[in-house]
Structures are given as C-alpha cells and as structure tokens.
Amino acid sequence: MRFHQFEIFPVCGSMITDSVPLPIEYLQPECHGTIVEMCGQPCQMQRLAELGIRQGCKVRMVCQGEPCLICIEGRRISLRLGDSADIFVIPAAG
C-alpha cells in the first residue's frame, strides 16, 4: 500500500505539518524525521528491526532515490524495499 498523493508533493519537513506521515523515500536530503509506522511482510519487518529500523527511530535522509541512503543513530543504511514493506516518517520541523 502506498500513498500516491505524496508523489505529487515530495516536500521537505520544514514545509509540512508534523502530523502528516510520508513514505521515507520522500524525505528530502538532509531532512530529519521520526519513523511512525512500518508495515509489510513479517520477515521483512523483522529484518528491518534487527538492523535498527523501527518505530520511534529518528532518521536523516542522506541520499534520496531508489535505493535511498538513510542515517539512523549515526549508521548509514541503504534501503530499497519495493512492495515488501513501507516505512512512514513524520518530518521534523525546521
């Protein structure tokens, strides 16, 4: 399940309200966010969690695209999940 409306408005955290979650791949480079929801295949969810990607984590986008490069707790993780999982973040203001 993807929120296709975000494809029309890929925006930086400073421009939207904190309550709107967006797919992680739409977080702009150098924008910060917090993971608020993760859904997908259970084994994929488990793998993501083992790598430290879980709800409540603060994330920074290093390189946008598919795959994207994110930074979580100082670790850089490259990510292309396709249809197997979705990660939603709320961008931090500012």
């Binding site: 793998r47 993501l48 670790r75 850089r76 490259s78 292309r80 999940l81 396709g82 249809d83 197997s84």
Partner: peptide
C-alpha cells in the same frame, strides 16, 4: 521481482 536491498554502509 528483484529482492529488496537492505545494507549497512560503514563510515
């Protein structure tokens, strides 16, 4: 489909 790509890149 291509498998997902999940990899840690160390500093």
């Amino acid at each position: 489909e291509p498998a997902t790509f999940l990899m840690e890149l160390h500093s």
